[in-house]
Design a binder for these strands. Structure first.
Lengths: 251, 251
DNA sequence: GGGCTGAATTGATCTGAATCAATGTCTTTT
DNA sequence: AAAAGACATTGATTCAGATCAATTCAGCCC
């Protein structure tokens, strides 16, 4: 299903840090590779014990590495790249429940089956743990558990926002909300915002069709809210108006 | 905003248990009142220290006790009754993001503001903690943190299901999914299912209008999928077909 | 029981987004 | 640089569910 290599950890002792959303550089907890970092600093003696069973996995664009409904054996931490998470209906209708990028944890499930599928948008590197191992890690490092709780809380807030979007917002409000969500991924809000996903992904994330997404972006261009660049980027040219639109304040 | 009394804890020592979803009887961690229980058994010596600042609050039907966007000062554990959680847009459009009942924790937020509002459907009893206190509790009782992580994971799965529903399901599929969700609240699936919320609440939960909810329930009655009882109850008469409908397998 | 009030149902019409249908534009391959 | 294939845009038409508009029903409180 995906290309996969065992973790290559060099012998030199070093501080081991969980890859995460805070964006300080560090080393992956499971395999010791350099990554965006976060969270919990753990001393060198822990490394040997922790790194034994971990694997680093490389996933090519379009490949899925979590299958909805499959036994939830593993737990993932994304080291680089972009991932889409989704649920599907038997006739092919699909809802993307979120996009995940460097630092995100995936596969946290109470059930024995994955509740969603995950597919690489671009080339993705990730660290894979067994769930049993994750349980041990949590016992040894309470800060990891706290970190996961904080991440789950944040995702819950995001999910609630998305429910408001899907249940009650118009197509224009949905696309505006989406663009503002993506702007938060770049340091400077007036620079180009990358949209690594296809129109089809956007549509499945926003509960729309590709045609409606396309039409809405075209409308935003004629309204001088955004300029649409080459190669999957947009630039926001009227931040205030876009915010008002996303918040449901405009007609 | 709500009637409120300080906790009345009696002096007799006893084991203290967190109110929760597992439905074993026990005593509330914060105030010592008898409640549906779960999770973590804590020894008697802890009680005095823990129960000092806790209050039990009684919330009347229709009253809200969490205001969306207000400073997130407190943390709640529902002791009895039904609550709706929602987000709203400035023009009054509303999305109910979930219903909570006995045992649920509310107000877990990383942000300093509540991301959603909460309102009592019927008479609700709940235990209130300050967030600072909650933090101390989590330091002292790691099992509490684990419990909260498990609850957050479950809610995340529910939220993903709801996103699929709101983004991609038809009105009939939505109502069918909702009814099946409510059936899980009663021990025997062939008995009457209580629907304590109004049609308006159902509509705002399902991303529909009250008229569509009503029409769809009427259609289900004529199709012999359900019988609609007096006083906010339904009984499911064709479980298989309803399941197929909810899963998107039917026309 | 009889009026009162908010909730629920049912009907007629409208509309935003879906669907169906070309056409246009990038990207990759050779 | 040309061809192929995937992705994106734009246009015409349809339709599921919203909106507007009456009734009808279920609790209540005397």
């Amino acid at each position: 299903m995906s290309d996969q290599t065992t973790c290559q950890r060099d012998a030199r002792p070093r501080r081991l840090i969980l890859a995460g959303a805070h964006r300080q550089p560090g080393y992956c907890l499971s395999c010791g590779i350099r990554a965006q970092s976060v969270c919990s600093v753990i001393d060198d003696d822990d490394i040997a014990r922790l790194a034994e069973t971990a694997v680093e996995t490389l996933v090519l664009p379009g490949r899925s590495f979590i299958e909805e409904g499959a036994p939830a054996t593993d737990f993932y931490n994304i080291t680089s790249g972009n991932v889409k998470l989704f649920k599907a209906l038997p006739d092919g209708r699909r809802q993307i429940t979120g996009f995940a990028t460097t630092g995100h944890f995936l596969g946290l499930a109470v059930s024995d089956l994955y509740a969603f599928g995950a597919e690489a948008i671009d080339t993705v590197r990730l660290c894979r743990f067994s769930r049993a191992r994750m349980r041990l890690l949590m016992d040894d490092f309470p800060r990891l558990e706290r970190r996961l709780l904080a991440e789950a809380s944040n995702e819950l807030v995001a999910a609630q926002n998305q429910m408001l979007l899907l249940g009650r917002k118009t197509a224009r409000e949905r696309v505006a909300s989406f663009l503002l969500e993506r702007v938060r991924e770049v340091p400077n809000p007036s620079e180009d915002v990358p949209l690594p996903m296809t129109r089809s992904d956007m549509a499945d994330y926003l509960g729309l069709t590709i045609e409606t997404v396309s039409r809405t972006l075209s409308w935003m261009r004629t309204e001088r809210l955004v300029t649409i660049g080459k190669g999957h980027t947009v630039r926001i040219t009227a931040m205030e108006r876009l915010h008002a639109l996303a918040a449901g304040e405009a007609g």
